[in-house]
Design a protein around this nucleic acid. Sequence first.
DNA 1: TCAATAGTGTCTTTTAGACATTATATG
DNA 2: CATATAATGTCTAAAAGACACTATTGA
Lengths: 226, 226
Amino acid sequence: MNTDALARVTVDTVVLAVRGAHLHVLLTKHAGRWGLPSTPKTPEESLAAAARRVAGEIGEPLERAHLEQLAAYGEPGRDPADHVVSVAHLALVPDGRFEHQRDAARWWVVEDLARGEGPPLELDHRRIVDDAVERTRAKLEYTTLATRLLREPFTVGDLYEVYCAVWGGNPGDKANFARKVRRTEGFVIPTGTTTPHRGRGRPAMRYVAGPATALRPPITRSASEP
Amino acid sequence: MNTDALARVTVDTVVLAVRGAHLHVLLTKHAGRWGLPSTPKTPEESLAAAARRVAGEIGEPLERAHLEQLAAYGEPGRDPADHVVSVAHLALVPDGRFEHQRDAARWWVVEDLARGEGPPLELDHRRIVDDAVERTRAKLEYTTLATRLLREPFTVGDLYEVYCAVWGGNPGDKANFARKVRRTEGFVIPTGTTTPHRGRGRPAMRYVAGPATALRPPITRSASEP
DNA sequence: TCAATAGTGTCTTTTAGACATTATATG
DNA sequence: CATATAATGTCTAAAAGACACTATTGA
């Protein structure tokens, strides 16, 4: 067997969450440099399992989170020291759990990284984060994945804010958005309860995620932004 | 370094084409068994370059074809003999070129494979082909990729037939389809020429692919099928 | 009471889909 | 001429989008 064909295969996980009004990505510090959670792929473990494991190891368990494969990265020279192929994954988690270990792992605002205001990242991890964010933005158009970024139960207003945070702009008129969400069968299921007082205003109906995965018709980014 | 983490990385390419009224996939025979064109990934070569190379080696050059990464496959035990991670790619080529070498490589009708009428494939290649076909079907809805399955110049009728072949059903009324295609800016560009006589009927206007990649609004599969 | 947020109604414009009509070729 | 295929026109129903209105809370 040609040993040239052997490579180190690593599994990287881009964990995204909406915190406040901003999309965040979870990074870890490794030998003094920030980068994605990364782990070697072993023969006994699937790619997805490795992706879940490495996120759990830095404090963000993905048992019930959305996880999908993003892409494999194998450009020559992406790791100057070795022949490494990374299989990147994308995880969407609700906000709230992860706060500790600020020195070894913390959330970064995606927009800050994109503007170059964050730390430089290992290897091509900046590119991988960009790809993950773009995939997420696109998938919010035609899938129900936005609900995976919320803790249940949630309101239609919460869902609207997720779209705003991920897209960095609003998905059109709030009232039309709400109608669209409720009209799409299987997107959200009413719990029959309403929010307790959080500030002023009429209490909102609360929902849990429904069984639908596709969004037809889609919620498009090209909508006007009043 | 942990040698457990070393794996054989292979690059597989699913080459799809529309021939006659059916979607076909290009397979090669390897040690008596049919499977996808596959090659080891080397440190000097990118994943995409390896995917192009291996298709070229069996007689289907991909220089101008659409090529995208499909997914990485790394389930434990998918290759009983070894720790192999395969990075599969999807290529869409126009019909016409590849005919020779029927013993070592040939086109198979995708629907026949799906019905179990084709040969058994190596490893999990059947699954990879299924994933590639589903990706292609989905992408025809919201991208202009259908033009990559045609030799230029083509007619709107040709494009309609591509949709029929890939989806295994028609994408709604032909007249409405034609209007939609022409109305979408950058999808097709008229050449000013028309088809010479091919059978009877009015000659059709001919087009080349335009610069647009996204299709907004999409051409949906859920359309009625008269 | 007002301010703030949630939710509904309604009007206009756009689009989809069905289907009829016109156009241009061959035999 | 008839017939086949290409392209356009038209009608109706559905959907998107703008925006006014009602509902329900806290201050």
